[in-house]
Write a protein that binds this DNA or RNA. Structure first.
Length: 577
DNA sequence: GCCGTTTTCGGCCCGACTGTTTTCAGTCG
């Protein structure tokens, strides 16, 4: 299997981490991480770029890294990484996951006490061997044991779909506290990352202690882990960490920008500030010793010669350069979406009726809903045989007739069989308004077989949309191997739409490939994959992917009216026939 | 290891908090 951009980025990151553990120059380790990030966000194949000799044009890639990347993509191996792996015990990487244990401490535990695994570490901590070490005290030893316990109980990351509602609930409650002046969610939640490690909340207040007391007493707070005069950390009941920062009123905009991140975006922004002889911190934008106190984030960006950058775009993947040229996308929003595509009902594995789903979609302000049940091969999901689908289409048409001011459209989420065919006959598919084709079985093919399978399905004239392209379940199941770039090329070529499955566990396409797809002119459909009326709210999470993927309204087919969506699908079929 | 509107060498974002320290290193974001 060819070496992908992701493989290269992973290898470079591992080198960075291993170098940290060997006590290398921290700027050298950072260089590996920077390069990894740029390669992961790259819109083209790094192997192809290596073949053309263009690697050194990439930001963060110089002579040395270009040689290593070339070796990796040409041979599938990297001697430098293999050597590092031989030098550094594998268990040290696992130890780094423990809070407050960083590369320096782990390296000392390894070199001075011979600790190479988490099991060694726990035994040594319980035996009181750690506090003998210079710079390690009894408190550190106890914290390591506590951290070990936490790592075992908590998953490292939390789904956006779980974390965001919880964080919004806490922010709303704190907002009612009289000592709170302004309060905003910051960090990766504000950027709407698909999974998050913790919650960042920013507050201005004349009485920080009162705010901290209120947080400490909140129902969703398990215990306080850190509390200073401007910063507090708590462990939430779901074992997520929440950081609260209190800043002066005049610093709010700078602090919001700062604590929203990402770290990479902020580093790039600070470098840009330096070129303007300015300095940025969470307290403001400084010209010499003078704080310019930007009133809004937009004002801060403007002072640096940049158009305002939406939080979802702040990943240092080209947004700063685009802002400098005033070439940022006009991001799609939920309000732009006129209709919902991809919902199930009791006919397959959903929990609500056609009537209930249609009413719920209309109540949310949408003007149409496309019903897409599973097909017969998805027997586990009570998928519809051809005969049952014919009856179901008739029921959808009949209900659509009765509804006023709202359209109910007939679709399917048909299984893509192992050979790339669908399990419905063409004459039946031709009756449907929207045909989504998805892989739900036989995940263990090679990447090449899987990619061929999906592209074969896309060539079927009646297929309008490819569902959840990689089949990933966030924090649970890795994507099956599929060459997403090749599928995107095929979609551009065939005019096929790619689904952004909006279920919080999927968010598939991911935002990185969404960005690549729309850059190539591919349209996307944000699909809640709703199995009940509450599931229609997943649209919100799908939109975060679209926005992080630089989608404008015209890139997203949900912004079309029902009539225009049906016309688009007919055109796709006609163009392929 | 990368990079240059001052630089091909000497920088590399910046600050809060904790714990182990009597002035600071490590970690985190």
């Amino acid at each position: 299997m060819a070496v992908t951009n992701h493989d290269v980025a992973t290898a470079l990151r591992e080198i960075g981490t291993l170098l940290e553990l060997t006590g290398a120059n921290p700027f050298k380790t950072r260089a590996y991480e920077t390069a990894a990030r740029h390669i992961e966000g790259l819109g083209e194949d790094v192997a192809a770029l290596a073949a053309e000799g263009g690697l050194e044009d990439l930001p963060g890639v110089g002579e040395s890294l270009a040689a290593k990347i070339t070796e990796l993509v040409e041979t599938g191996e990297l001697a430098y990484l293999d050597d590092l792996r031989k030098k550094v015990p594998e268990g040290l990487l696992e130890m780094l996951r423990i809070p407050d244990l960083g590369p320096k401490k782990v390296a000392r535990l390894w070199q001075e006490l011979g600790i190479t695994t988490v099991a060694d570490l726990e035994r040594a901590a319980r035996n009181g061997e750690l506090h003998e070490l210079d710079g390690f005290g009894k408190k550190t030893e106890a914290n390591i044991l506590e951290g070990l316990d936490l790592v075992r109980r908590a998953s490292a990351r939390t789904l956006l779909g779980d974390a965001l509602p919880m964080a919004e609930h806490i922010v709303a409650d704190l907002g009612k506290v009289s000592a709170v002046d302004r309060i905003e969610l910051a960090g990766s939640l504000r950027r709407r990352r698909e999974t998050v490690k913790d919650v960042d909340v920013l507050v201005t207040s004349a009485n920080p202690d009162a705010v901290m007391d209120a947080l400490a007493g909140h129902d969703l707070v398990e215990r306080v882990t850190e509390r200073g005069s401007t910063k507090m950390s708590v462990l939430l009941t779901n074992l997520m960490n929440l950081d609260l920062r209190v800043v002066p009123k005049a610093s709010f905009a700078a602090a919001l920008q700062y604590f929203t991140g990402s770290a990479d975006h902020n580093i790039a922004l600070r470098n840009l500030a330096k070129k303007h002889d300015l300095k940025i911190s969470e307290y403001g934008l400084f010209d010499g010793g003078k704080n310019l106190h930007p009133k809004t984030e937009a004002a801060l960006y403007k002072r640096l010669g940049l158009a305002p950058i939406e939080p979802e775009l702040r990943e240092d993947t080209g947004e700063i350069e685009a802002a400098a040229r005033d070439a940022l996308p006009d991001l799609v929003s939920l309000d732009d979406c006129k209709g919902v595509i991809h919902a199930h009902t009791v006919a397959s594995d959903g929990h609500a009726t056609l009537e209930e789903m249609a009413a719920a979609a209309r109540d949310l302000g949408y003007s149409y809903l496309v019903i897409c049940e599973h097909s017969g091969s998805a027997s586990y999901a009570n998928g519809l045989t051809a005969d049952r689908l014919r009856e179901h289409v008739a029921a959808i048409r009949a209900l659509d007739e009765k509804l006023t001011g709202f359209r109910l459209l007939a679709g399917t989420e048909a299984d893509i069989l192992a050979d790339g065919s669908l399990d419905y006959p063409d004459d039946l598919l031709a009756e449907l308004d929207v045909v989504i084709a998805s892989v739900h079985s036989r995940f263990k093919m090679t990447g090449e077989e899987m990619t061929d399978r999906i592209i074969t399905a896309m060539r079927n004239p009646y297929v309008h949309v490819v569902g959840h392209l990689t089949g990933r379940l966030l924090l649970k199941r890795d994507p099956y191997p599929v060459d997403q770039e090749r599928v995107i090329e095929a979609a551009a070529d065939l005019g096929v739409i790619l689904e952004i499955n909006a279920h919080p566990s999927r968010l598939d396409l991911d935002w990185q490939h969404t960005k690549i797809a729309v850059q190539k002119g591919v349209k996307v459909a944000v699909c809640p994959d709703a199995h009940d009326t509450a599931g229609l709210a997943h649209m919100r999470f799908g939109l975060t992917v679209a926005r992080r993927g630089w989608c404008e309204p015209a890139d997203v087919v949900n912004t079309l009216t029902a009539r225009r969506l049906v016309t688009l699908c007919r055109t796709i079929t006609a163009d392929k026939s």
